[in-house]
């Protein structure tokens, strides 16, 4: 995850991808409530379910994708970067824990998860719970 230039486009990618996801991938979600949306820590609106799906990465990659250990942070990575990494891991036959985890997710789900992490700022203000 070293392609820094993508991070500047992260926020833009969310808005572009959002409309795409809501239409193109609607069929991938059986009965999904696609009229709903979630707001991320950074206040960015992401498609329905994106935050919940992405939160399944938090156990290892930290709350909101901000790691507090040696495991990679995902917050602020570009959507494309996360998508290509997940696709790469899905294709791997080498035995690594994340290679198995990646295989659990469809391309549509990976796009939602990636959209979420791209929308979260990298900074340490990981909590949106003091600003109301």
């Amino acid at each position: 995850m070293k392609h820094k230039q993508w991070s500047y486009l992260g926020a833009l990618a969310v808005f572009v991808s959002q409309s795409f996801l809501l239409t193109a991938n609607a069929a991938d979600y059986t009965g999904g409530q696609l009229s709903n949306t979630n707001i991320t820590a950074a206040g960015v609106v992401v498609p329905d379910g994106a935050r919940l799906l992405a939160s399944q990465c938090f156990q290892c990659h930290g709350t909101n994708g901000k790691s507090t250990t040696g495991i990679d942070s995902l917050a602020g990575e570009s959507q494309n970067e996360i998508i290509s990494e997940m696709r790469e891991m899905k294709a791997k036959t080498k035995v690594d824990l994340m290679h198995y985890q990646a295989k659990a997710y469809t391309d549509a789900q990976i796009q939602l998860i990636a959209a979420y992490f791209a929308s979260v700022s990298r900074g340490n203000s990981s909590n949106n719970n003091h600003d109301d």
């Binding site: 979600y29 059986t30 009965g31 409530q33 329905d48 379910g49 156990q59 985890q101």
Partner: peptide, 21 residues
Amino acid sequence: DAVLRLLSGSQPFAAPMTNSA
């Protein structure tokens, strides 16, 4: 996530995933 949706009169997300490691 589901409880917050239910409290607002909405329905739970229809395609949840979980994982174990």
